[in-house]
Design a protein around this nucleic acid. Sequence first.
DNA 1: TATTATCCTATCAATTTAATAGAGTAAACA
DNA 2: TGTTTACTCTATTAAATTGATAGGATAATA
Lengths: 154, 154
Amino acid sequence: MVDKGLYDVNLNFLYLRPMLSKKTKYGLKALTYLASQKDKAPVQISEIAKCENISQKFLESILLSLRKSGFLGSKKGKGGGYYLIKDPNEVLMTDVMRVLEGPISMVPCVSLNFYEKCADCRDEATCSVNKLMLKVRDANLEVYRNNTLADLII
Amino acid sequence: MVDKGLYDVNLNFLYLRPMLSKKTKYGLKALTYLASQKDKAPVQISEIAKCENISQKFLESILLSLRKSGFLGSKKGKGGGYYLIKDPNEVLMTDVMRVLEGPISMVPCVSLNFYEKCADCRDEATCSVNKLMLKVRDANLEVYRNNTLADLII
DNA sequence: TATTATCCTATCAATTTAATAGAGTAAACA
DNA sequence: TGTTTACTCTATTAAATTGATAGGATAATA
């Protein structure tokens, strides 16, 4: 059953605000593409870009950052490309999301890895936003911790 | 136990990207402030702004949108202000978040209320992003459905 | 040595956010 | 009736971010 919104208004966006960045979206697709390969042979950026409908130049920078953060290996020259370093079963979504999208928490004051006090908040202990976002963080963490790259295939 | 990030990099942000907008943050604080009042007498924007450390002009526009979406009532002139229309127990976070922050889903292709096909996706059924974001949506929905404004107080 | 494909830096337009300014409107009250 | 109060509305703004593109440097292969 659909939980229909009670109020109209908010005509100002019709999904003008996709909260997941294209960077993350493309990164996830690329990782999945590599995880779906039969062997571990390097795959060229151009192949991934074409098959997944991604701007090649943009994808270049994303794969580069995935390599620098330890998810991918690369090989230059002919026959080169990118390949997964670990088994898809061992690639946790928590780690992938933190590298691609950034902190999992929606506010710094509930972040495990990137904690910061909110500059404008008087008291964290009685802050309603803190209270709600803590629950949201835990719910998201639960999902990301229980999903690996292997779970995204097919 | 803290789930420490395995990889460094991503030096480029130290929470430069708080995913929760200030609009939502301020809106939640204002709603909580009103819900904490003893009686249902109107509270002035200026009082909320001062007590919650919020830019008054910005708060004006937020409260206005909360009124237009049916959460608040208002009264002009002396002794005027904003007041909650419903009992805090009946104000679901799903509804509040949709008005303040927008769709709960991180991608349009998994949105209940704002569904849209992703322009760049070939096949939703086999899309890894769709698969993951569906789980994330459900987890978030679970939190927002099980929390009312009353749950945010103290 | 020529070719291939990753690596790196720089730039760009478009969008969004958060904040501010200022005038308009309606209610209360003396 | 007229003044004060406080919400209502429109417009503008700076700053930041996103997504995309260009061009050349580097390294590996044949």
